Simulated scan of single mutants.
Amino acid sequence: MQQKRILLTALFSALVIVGAYIRIPLPPVPITLQTLFVLLAGFLGGTRMAVASTAIYLLLGMVGLPVFTSGGGLGILFGPTGGFLLGLLPASLLAGIAGNMKQKSERPKRYLLLCILTGLAATITVYLVGVPYLKYTRSLSWQTALKVGMLPFLIGDLLKVAAAAHLAKTFHERTEQFMA
């Protein structure tokens, strides 16, 4: 069981890295799929696995491996995207609540709703950390920081929450069918 947890944690870290490279360059913050995989790690693995996989991703980037959208190194965390990257850690914790609760809830609709609610809370958390960080690193007004750091991402992030919740629910339904 421990080996399975380690393998899945590494897999989710790798998926977050892949998500960084699936991007639409939009200055100063690109659109990526990192949050989709952070949400999935939480929904499927719970808080421990989600936080661990996200922390591994951040640590790999901080030591210089080119896992962030703009490369690697500690300096990236001090740039305009640093707050969004750091916001992934508390977001993974929030998304993991759904994964933890899955073991206690046998009703798929309740689990789906829990994934959507925790996914929205996680997404808001990324904005709550990222937008002020962007504002101060770029000396922007609040209006401009919201305009470039949040507004272009709202629809895509809502779609990511919906996709991650649907994928997690489907995964759990299929594994339950397989195990039955």
Rank of each mutant, 00 (worst) to 15 (best):
G149D: 06
F153L: 10
S70Y: 11
A41W: 04
L60I: 03
D157T: 07
F153Q: 07
L88N: 08
Q143M: 04
I22P: 05
P152M: 12
V18S: 11
A41N: 05
G156M: 10
E106S: 13
G19P: 05
L88D: 03
T81R: 00
I6K: 13
L151M: 12
L113D: 06
A41R: 01
T69Y: 02
E106V: 00
P27I: 05
V161R: 01
G45W: 06
S141G: 09
Y127V: 03
Q103D: 12
L86W: 04
L117P: 00
T35N: 11
R110E: 15
L77I: 09
L44T: 08
L58G: 01
A165S: 14
T35Q: 11
L60M: 13
L167P: 04
G130C: 02
K102A: 11
I124R: 02
V18K: 10
A50T: 03
G156F: 06
G72S: 13
Q34M: 11
G42K: 02
S105G: 00
K4I: 07
Q3D: 10
V63P: 08
L60T: 04
V148W: 09
L146N: 08
A10P: 06
A41M: 07
M62R: 00
L11E: 09
I116K: 08
I17C: 14
T144N: 10
A41C: 06
L33A: 12
A121K: 05
G73C: 10
A164T: 03
V131N: 01
